[in-house]
Structures are given as structure tokens and as C-alpha cells.
Design a protein around this nucleic acid. Structure first.
Length: 779
DNA sequence: GCTCTGTTTGTTTTT
DNA sequence: CAAACAGAGC
């Protein structure tokens, strides 16, 4: 019997060699629209169908939950199609509906269900539900499997409390936000509080290390972890426990990572540990029946603020691969044919990204006709910008009956730019969805409901307990709570243990004792039934019995009705979760809820105009794209203007936007816009100049993209720079201790900092800080 | 113990 | 121009 491998015929040679790769490492450098998702999906199918790999042994990491869901769906469908051909010798579509259904559910049971597909965070939380009990950090802290995942605002208030109440620090110097950022960065580099202290001995660093230490204490006391811990803890656990690592190493024989350019250090550590079983000597690596397969595009790396580091991708060949030059390597495949966009759009994208220095050379090759020129519009302000875009949408839709509202996307740099577009869309009664901004799970009533569920699942979660202890109002006031907290601190036991003991409550709480005991009884009751009741039953029960629903009903205002509606929506989400997953436990639902993103709501086939940030648009495509707000200070964002590295990231962001478009792309720029309630005059984005001017169509013939002189923020000079940067000049040969010899191709001056771009003979372009990198000038 | 209101503060991007 | 917060009044 010849296995029917129909899917291979749909691939070009490079895609095919990626899909047919079996064991060992492979880097797939995949340009925008080059069919990388297809390569990834088909490779998984090929592993199972052709190489007979057990789906259980495949780990595929995607960037979003949505991407994971879609990949599963595609695998399921393709698989069903293949099996159908093989068994019945007819296409899947020819089956009766009932046969289709039963085939799909069979594929689900044998394949999709067993695959480990998800985001780093989702997959790691799954691993932790098995193994977190085996972890012990360097201070001896431990966690239990019913841990809570703290959301960003919980973390924020926890930290604020530590900074202001416990440490009495100056809030100006140590605001919770920047401390959170430091801690998160530390965790993404794999640093514990002690490690952090070692690396930062200066006074401020020492204090941050102390706050970090105390923050860990409190997470532990709440039996809670934050987002970063979801990845950090497995890595640490694997490092300290050989047998746990061995188990998961053995489980995951084939590891696939999508969007590899946006992984950070700790995620890399995780992949490396799983792939190599922690063996550092690469001659000892055993690739029999194993592989690491990563897909990415350095030009689309846009998450460095989250510590993503695309040099991890650039180093793949050195790390895992054979390190041979491009022409000879067997561990890298480049996908350069673009199946998405019209040639004009690609040309613009290619021209734009050429201005970046640090990249793997790669050109998107068009496979479709040239298409229209790129629309460009200068408007008076953001209001006119929105009106222009919406009227254009209407016009194009009218002239192209095959398009629906879902064919259009409006992309912007920051969420607050959506406002005027929403207004105009509403006025025109055009359906739209807005991705990002305020999430469903950020709504007050949803957070209340979820907090109830979290306390029931994990009574040690004092943060959630405090949120609901007096919601709805049951006469448990500030002083009562403070007394209870004091008691719990003195006895160093969780608040919950005080509250669940009637005698203690009666002693401490006084007037509030009665309602406190009722409250505690309700939660205790449900906590006891956690095994026997489903998540949705618990939700309904707690919302009714706590009086939460009743209070909203009594209010009768429009707002209260809205909240009731949302709670109803939440219970639908729970039911949906139970439908989609075998796991109907409360904890299962709670972790999926914590990790849910707004992007998950974006459904294909929904005929609505999409509004989202450029970050959210990654991985998506639309026939018609409006990339708006192309102004200095917005795109590129003002915070990147004096740092060449961030500026390159902004350019990549713009590149991501441009390459989302299939048929047509519009760019807009508003001369004035409200910033912080003030009108501000804006100058055009420098990226506009970098695009091929002949492709820009202003609709009137005359080009108006020239910027006023003197507005260049980043000076690129070769000679006679006014300050002492003349030490480094374009054309100089230099020697770097690790990168070797190279030639300076650019000198950037931004404020006090100087960066230079060097093309190394062996390693290609890199941007360096000459003060940090110990560069030597050669003559 | 709870609500209202004036003041302050701050905006990139997100799993 | 928000939202979030603190302090005063009920």
C-alpha cells in the first residue's frame, strides 16, 4: 500500500524539504506570506502519517492561542481528507455530513487531542499542573498544583503594596510599574532574586532585588505564580531535577517552534533543555528519532520589549545546526516566495526593510501580479484620517462585490488610535471588531466572578479572597479586614484559615462575624465539592448564593443589566470550555481564562472590519489594509527615536503592517492629532521616505512626502561629526573579540549614545555600542 | 463604613 | 482626556 501523501504536492521545493525534514535540527527562515504555517502544519502531519510518530510525542509551540487552535483545526481537516482518500477513495466533501462528523471526531481522538500544541505559557501551565509539586526554589518555597495565575493588575497591586506599605520606599523613585518591568525582565533572563542581586550591586538594584524577594514570598503565600513563572519554574525544575527533565525530554521527541524570532532567553532555555536533555556537550546529542524544528523571520521580530531576542534565531545555526554557509548547510531552509501580496506591496516591504542593518539577507519574491499602487493620504487630523479610511472602505466594497467587511483591516501603532475609527464606523453603521485594548476578562464583574472561582480552587489565594470578601457588600469593612489580616500575619497562615475558623472569626470580627461566617461557609462548601461539580455548576452556584446576581438585579440600572449580561457570557465561556476540552475541572478553566487573549475573539468568516495594533496583526492577512498614523513619534514611536536598535524594531513593525496586505495597501498620515488632550503638529514618518516613491499614489498625482528639514532625529554621518564620534568612521576595519573582523557600515548618534553598525566578515551585520563591545580599530 | 468629587497622574506594543 | 486615587462628607 502506498501512503497517499497528497499534501506534499501542494508545496514548492523549499517548503517540501522543510516538511520532509525528519530528525535533527532545522531552521526555517520564512519570510512574510511564504507559507510557513502551512509548512509547520504539514510537517506535523507528515511526522504522523509517514514517519509514524505518535502524536503524543510532538510539541508545537505557537505564538497565540488562536494560532494553536487554527493549527489543530487544519491538521484535523487535512488528516480527515487524507484518510478519506485512502479508505473510501473519494474526497472528504463527498461524504455524508454524519460520516464527516464521525471521521473528524475519530481524528480528534487519535491525533489532535494527543498533540501538545499551544503557547509557551499554555503548554508550561499544563506541565506545571503535573509537576509543580516537585519544584522547590532556592529559598525553599514550594507550590501546589492548584496554584493561581496572577493577572497583571493583581501583580501590580501586590508590588505597589510591597513598595509603599512594607518597604516605605519613595514611590517616585520606585514605582510599581518599573519594578514590575525589572522583575519581569529578570525572570525572562532566568534570574532569581539572588541572581539579580549578584548582577546589580548598585543601591537601586539591591532594593529591587529585595522587593523581588518579597514578591516571591507573597506569590508563594498565595500559592500563586505570575506569567513569567509559568516558563521560569519549569526551566528551573528541569535544571534541578534530572528525572523530571528526563520524563519530558522523552515525552517530546519532536519539538516545533513557530515565530522563533520572538522567543526570549528563558523560552530558549526551555526548548534547549527539552531537546537536549540538558546535555551541554553537543557531540553527545542523540538525534535519533528526535528533532528541533524552528520557524521564524528576524525581520518580523517585534517583541523585544518582552525580552524577545532575535539573535537567538540568528544563532540557531551555531547552536544546533551545522553552521555551514547558506549554500551548503543542511540545517537551514529559506522560504522566500511570497504567496500573499501583490508585487507592489512586496517591493515596498523589501525597500523598507533594507534600511535595517541587523538581519539575515532575504528578499520576498512575488508570485502574483503587480497589483495597484499603494494609496497614500495626508489628512488634516485624526478625524479626517478616519473619515478618509471609512469612505475608502465603502467605495472599495461597493466596487468589488466579492469583498465583505471582513476583508478590511485598519492597523495602528497604539490602541488609543482606534477611537476616531470606531466613531466613524458606528456612524456609518459598518460592523467592526476591535482586537485588544480592554479585554473581556478585565471587566470588573468578570474579575469578581473569576476571583470567586480562584478562591474556591485555591483558598490560599488571598489576593482573590480580598477582592470578593465584601463584594457584594456584606458589611465586612476595612477595619475588620485589617484585623483579620493582622491575625493571619502574626500566625503566618493564609487569611483563609482564619476566616474558615468560626471561633477565630467570632473573636476578631465582632459585628461582621455573622456574615463573614456565612461567606466562609459558602466557599468552604463549594471547595469541598470541587471534584464532583463542573466548573459551570460552581460558577452558577457561587454567583447565586453569594448574592452577587441578586445585588445586580436589584440595582436595575442599565449598567447592572450589562454586568449580568457579561456574567451570563462568562458562564457561556465556561460551557464552551467544557465542550472543547476533556478537562472540565475548575482549575482547567481558570488557567485557560488567565491565558486567554483578546485575539481569540477574532473569528474568520465574521464579516466585520478589523481594528488592531500592528503587534496583534502579526500572523494575519487581509485583502485590504489601512496602515494609519505614519508620523514621527507614533510610527516610529517617540520612545524609540533616539535608539537605533528600537528604531529598527519600529521599522520591522511597519514592515509587518505592510506585509499583511494581500491586494491593496493604504498609508495615511495626519498633520495634527490630539496627544494628552493637546493638539500637536506631526511630521511624516521617516519610513514614508524609505518606500519607493513611485509606488505611492496620493490620488492627486503630486507627491507630498518630503519632510521638513532638520527633523532627522538620527543622524547618519560618515565624516566630521561634531562630537567625538569621529573615533569611528564608516569604512573603518575593526576587530571584535568574539565576532572577529568587520567593516563599519553606519554610525548612529542618538543623544549621548553612539551605536555603530558593523558588517562582520563571518557573521554579517550587527549593531554594537562601541563603549560596551571591546572593539579595536584596525588599519 | 460607604459614596462622592476634585485632583492628580500618565500612554507602546502583550503571552 | 481619560482613569485612578485620595480625602472629605454623609
Amino acid at each position: 500500500m502506498t501512503t497517499n501523501l497528497d499534501y506534499l504536492r501542494q508545496l514548492n521545493p523549499s517548503q517540501r524539504s522543510a516538511v520532509e525534514h525528519f530528525c535533527g535540527p532545522l531552521l526555517v527562515v520564512a519570510g512574510a506570506g511564504s507559507g510557513k504555517t502551512r509548512a509547520l502544519t504539514y510537517r506535523i502531519i507528515h511526522l504522523i502519517r509517514y514517519h509514524k510518530v505518535d502524536p503524543e510525542n510532538i510539541l508545537a509551540v505557537t505564538f497565540t492561542n488562536k494560532a494553536a487552535r487554527e493549527m489543530k483545526l487544519r491538521i484535523e481537516r487535512t488528516f480527515a481528507g487524507e484518510i478519506c482518500q485512502e479508505k473510501h477513495e473519494k474526497p472528504f466533501e463527498a461524504l455524508k455530513e454524519s460520516e464527516q462528523k464521525s471521521l473528524l471526531s475519530q481524528v480528534y481522538r487519535c491525533v489532535t487531542k494527543k498533540l501538545w500544541i499551544g503557547t509557551f505559557h499554555g503548554l508550561c501551565s499544563r506541565i506545571l499542573r503535573y509537576d509543580i509539586g516537585k519544584y522547590r526554589d532556592e529559598k525553599g518555597r514550594t507550590w501546589r498544583s492548584n496554584f493561581s495565575i496572577m493577572d497583571e493588575s493583581d501583580v501590580q497591586s501586590l508590588l505597589k503594596n510591597i513598595v509603599t506599605k512594607q518597604f516605605n520606599l519613595d514611590e517616585k523613585k520606585f514605582d510599581a510599574r518599573s519594578i514590575r518591568y525589572s522583575i519581569s525582565n529578570a525572570k525572562n533572563l532566568g534570574l532569581s532574586p539572588d541572581d539579580y542581586l549578584k548582577e546589580h550591586s548598585y543601591p537601586k538594584g539591591r532594593i529591587i532585588a529585595e522587593v523581588y524577594q518579597e514578591y516571591q514570598n507573597q506569590l508563594c503565600a498565595n500559592n500563586a505564580v505570575d506569567f513569567d513563572d509559568l516558563i521560569l519554574i519549569p526551566v528551573r525544575l528541569f535544571q534541578q531535577n534530572e528525572s523530571v527533565l528526563g520524563y519530558w525530554h522523552n515525552q517530546f521527541k519532536h519539538i516545533l517552534v513557530d515565530e522563533y524570532q520572538d522567543t526570549n532567553q528563558i523560552q530558549y532555555d526551555l526548548i534547549r533543555l527539552l531537546g537536549t536533555n540538558g546535555e551541554t556537550d553537543r557531540t553527545q546529542w542523540d538525534w535519533r528519532n528526535r528533532s528541533i524544528f524552528v520557524v521564524g523571520d528576524a525581520d518580523q521580530s517585534i517583541y523585544s520589549f518582552r525580552m524577545a531576542d532575535f539573535t537567538i534565531l540568528l544563532n540557531f545555526q551555531k547552536d544546533f545546526g551545522d553552521g555551514l554557509p547558506d549554500a551548503d548547510t543542511r540545517t537551514m531552509v529559506k522560504l522566500e516566495e511570497n504567496y500573499r501580496s501583490r508585487e507592489n506591496i512586496l517591493e515596498a516591504a523589501n525597500k523598507l526593510i533594507e534600511n535595517n542593518t541587523q538581519r539575515i539577507d532575504k528578499v520576498l519574491k512575488a508570485t502574483r501580479g503587480s497589483g495597484d499602487t499603494i494609496g497614500f493620504k495626508v489628512t488634516r487630523d485624526e478625524q479626517e484620517e478616519a473619515e478618509f479610511v471609512v469612505s475608502k472602505i465603502k467605495e472599495i466594497k461597493r466596487n468589488n462585490p466579492e469583498l465583505n467587511w471582513g476583508s478590511f483591516a485598519i492597523l495602528y501603532r497604539i490602541n488609543s488610535q482606534s477611537r476616531p475609527f470606531e466613531d466613524v464606523l458606528i456612524k456609518s453603521t459598518i460592523p467592526y471588531t476591535i482586537v485588544g485594548g480592554f479585554k473581556f476578562y478585565d471587566r470588573q464583574e468578570i474579575k469578581d466572578a473569576v476571583a470567586y472561582l480562584r478562591v474556591i480552587a485555591n483558598p490560599a489565594d488571598t489576593v482573590s479572597l480580598l477582592r470578593v470578601i465584601n463584594t457584594p457588600r456584606r458589611g465586612i469593612g476595612k477595619t475588620t479586614i485589617e484585623n483579620l489580616l493582622k491575625a493571619s500575619q502574626e500566625l503566618s497562615i493564609p487569611l483563609w484559615e482564619i476566616i474558615s475558623d468560626e471561633t477565630s472569626v467570632n473573636t476578631i470580627a465582632g459585628r461582621a462575624a455573622k456574615s463573614l461566617n456565612e461567606f466562609s461557609k459558602l466557599l468552604q462548601d463549594l471547595h469541598g465539592k470541587i471534584e464532583e461539580l463542573s466548573a459551570s455548576e460552581i460558577l452558577t452556584e457561587v454567583m447565586e448564593s453569594s448574592g452577587y446576581i441578586e445585588e445586580l438585579r436589584l440595582q436595575g440600572t442599565e449598567e447592572a443589566d450589562n454586568r449580568l449580561e457579561n456574567i451570563f457570557e462568562l458562564s457561556n465561556a465556561v460551557l464552551q470550555y467544557q465542550e472543547d476540552n476533556e478537562d472540565i475541572t475548575l482549575q482547567g478553566f481558570l488557567s485557560s481564562a488567565s491565558l486567554a487573549s483578546d485575539l481569540d475573539n477574532l473569528k474568520e468568516g465574521e464579516e466585520r472590519v478589523s481594528l488592531m495594533t500592528l503587534h496583534s496583526a502579526k500572523g494575519l492577512e487581509f485583502p485590504i489594509v489601512y496602515l494609519v498614523g505614519l508620523e514621527q513619534g507614533l510610527l516610529p514611536h517617540s520612545r524609540s527615536l533616539n535608539d537605533p536598535l528600537s528604531l529598527e524594531e519600529e521599522r520591522r513593525l511597519c514592515y509587518v503592517g505592510v506585509t499583511r496586505a494581500q491586494e491593496q495597501l493604504f498609508l495615511t498620515y495626519a498633520k495634527e492629532r490630539y496627544v494628552w488632550g493637546n493638539r500637536e503638529t506631526k511630521i511624516p514618518s521617516q519610513f514614508l521616505e524609505e518606500l519607493p516613491q513611485e509606488l505611492l499614489d496620493t490620488g492627486r498625482g503630486k507627491q507630498t512626502t518630503k519632510r521638513s528639514t532638520g527633523s532627522k532625529i538620527v543622524a547618519v554621518k560618515s565624516k566630521s561629526a561634531p562630537n567625538d564620534s569621529k573615533e569611528w568612521e564608516v569604512g573603518d576595519r575593526v576587530l571584535h573579540p568574539t565576532f572577529g573582523e568587520g567593516k563599519i557600515t553606519n554610525v548612529f548618534e542618538g543623544g549621548r549614545r553612539i551605536s555603530i553598525a558593523v558588517k562582520f566578515d563571518a557573521l554579517g551585520n550587527k549593531i554594537l555600542d562601541p563603549v560596551i563591545a571591546k572593539l579595536q580599530k584596525l588599519n
